[in-house]
């Protein structure tokens, strides 16, 4: 009887508690906005793509742990996260191909086919497009590793695995 019913995964249930339920709704929007701020100000102050990707991923992982895996918010699960990580790398490479279409070498930002006139602005736009690709890749990688680890905990039996003596 117990084998037929669906075994509950202890990390997929919501964590509970009224303090966490009401306080994460205030903290998480500020975390996500701060992550996007670090992404776009990456060329003016310390920051960049890797930091922004890690911050946004931590925000989403925290929501998933508190609310449980059944709610519909931030519903990016395992297979979709792997695909989106590849899309992030593709955005990075597509910037390089765009510069080759514009007439320069690979990843040479002065030849982007965008109607801007000053080459400083062209470099800033190229760096922003690259950092967006890196952010998406890092964020999706962290989310899909966490989903894979939680899926492994599905059979909640009492397995006694002892370390080597």
């Amino acid at each position: 009887m117990k084998n037929n019913s669906k075994k509950t995964n202890s990390m997929k249930r919501p964590f509970g508690g009224i303090v966490l339920d009401s306080s994460f709704r205030i903290i998480i929007p500020f975390t996500l906005v701060y992550g996007i701020y670090i992404l776009t100000h990456g060329e003016y102050s310390p920051g960049g793509g890797f930091q922004a990707g890690a911050l946004v991923a931590v925000g989403i992982v925290l929501v998933r742990l508190i609310q449980g895996a059944d709610k519909d918010s931030f519903n990016v699960t395992g297979p979709l996260a792997i695909v989106c990580a590849g899309v992030g790398t593709f955005i990075y490479a597509a910037t390089g191909w765009l510069t080759m279409i514009g007439g320069g070498k690979f990843l040479d930002y002065t030849y982007l086919p965008v109607p801007m006139h000053h080459w400083g602005e062209l470099h800033a736009l190229g760096i922003l497009m690259i950092e967006v690709g890196v952010t998406v890749c890092v964020m999706m990688t962290i989310i899909d590793i966490m989903d894979a680890i939680i899926e492994r905990l599905d059979d909640d039996t009492e397995e006694e695995v002892v370390c080597d003596e």
Partner: peptide
Amino acid sequence: TGSPNIVTATLA
């Protein structure tokens, strides 16, 4: 590169 941050300019 047009950015005052040398770390990001070198990396990107």
